[in-house]
Computed example of a mutant assay.
Amino acid sequence: MVTIDRSSDLTTIGANGGGWVAPVGTSSPADPATQPLPPWAPLGAISDDGLKYGFDEDSQEFTPWGLTSPFRTIITKSVRTFGMTLWETSRTTVKSVMYRLDEADLTPTAGVTSYAETASPSPDRRAWWFVVMDGETLNGFYVPQGEISDRSDVTFKRDEMSGYEITITAYPDEAGNTVYHLDKLPDTPVYTGS
C-alpha cells in the first residue's frame, strides 16, 4: 500500500506579516526573523487581506506540422507583483509611496502637512521587503527595485477603513533578478520511501 507523506509543519498560512520600503540600493535584511533597521521604513498595518504575490506570464507555443500539441514553449513575459492594502494612510512613509513623494517633503508646518499631486509623475523605484509569518515559518521577499504600478480608488466612509490598495511591480536588478527569497523553514524530514 502507498503511504502518503504529509507534514503540517511544511504548510504556510499568512497568519501575520509586514512590509518595509527603502531607497533603491538598500541591502536586504539578512534574516526574515530580525527587525529591519533604517533606512528601512515600515508600511504599518496591512489589511486583513494580507499580501498577494502575483505571477503574470505569457508564453509562445511552437507546434510542428503534423502534430496537435506543441513540442516547445518559450516564456515571452514574466512579471512578479506584490499587492496589499495599506491602512495607516496618515503614516508619512505610506503617503510617500502612494503619492510618489520624498518623505522629507511631508514634514508638517504649524501642524499642517501640504503636498500636491503632479499630472506628470516621475518613476519612483524603491527597494521593498516583505515578511510572511506562520509560527516558526517565515517567508521573506526582497525586491531590490520595485515601483507601485497600480493604485486603487480610496474610499472615505463611516463603516469602512480607508486604505491605499497598491500593486508593486518588481523590476530586474543588475544581476537580472526581480525577487529574492529568504525563508526560515523547519527541517524537512528525509523521505525514506516508506
Rank of each mutant, 00 (worst) to 15 (best):
T26P: 05
S28Q: 04
V79D: 11
I46Q: 04
D31C: 07
T109C: 02
D173Y: 05
M133Q: 14
P36Y: 13
I4A: 06
P186Y: 13
P64S: 05
A30M: 13
P70M: 05
E174N: 03
V24R: 07
G193H: 12
V154P: 04
S78A: 04
L10F: 08
V179T: 03
T118Y: 08
S27D: 14
L101S: 06
G14H: 12
P121T: 00
W40M: 06
S194A: 06
T109V: 14
S152Y: 01
L37K: 15
F62M: 14
Y115L: 06
V112L: 09
G111E: 07
Y180E: 03
L86C: 09
L37S: 15
G25Y: 08
S27F: 03
G176T: 09
V94D: 03
P32C: 08
D124A: 13
W40N: 08
R125S: 04
D102H: 08
W128V: 01
L101V: 04
T118Q: 08
S120K: 03
I148S: 05
K184I: 02
F55S: 15
Y53I: 15
P36V: 10
S8C: 10
E160Q: 12
D56E: 13
S152A: 05
D102L: 09
L182D: 11
E88F: 02
W129E: 06
V154L: 07
T85E: 13
F55P: 02
A119R: 06
D102G: 09
V24Y: 06
W129H: 10
D159M: 12
P70R: 08
T92Y: 01
S47V: 01
G83Q: 09
D150L: 01
E57T: 10
G19Y: 09
T11L: 15
W20C: 05
P123M: 05
Q145N: 00
S78V: 00
T85A: 15
T118M: 07
D9Y: 12
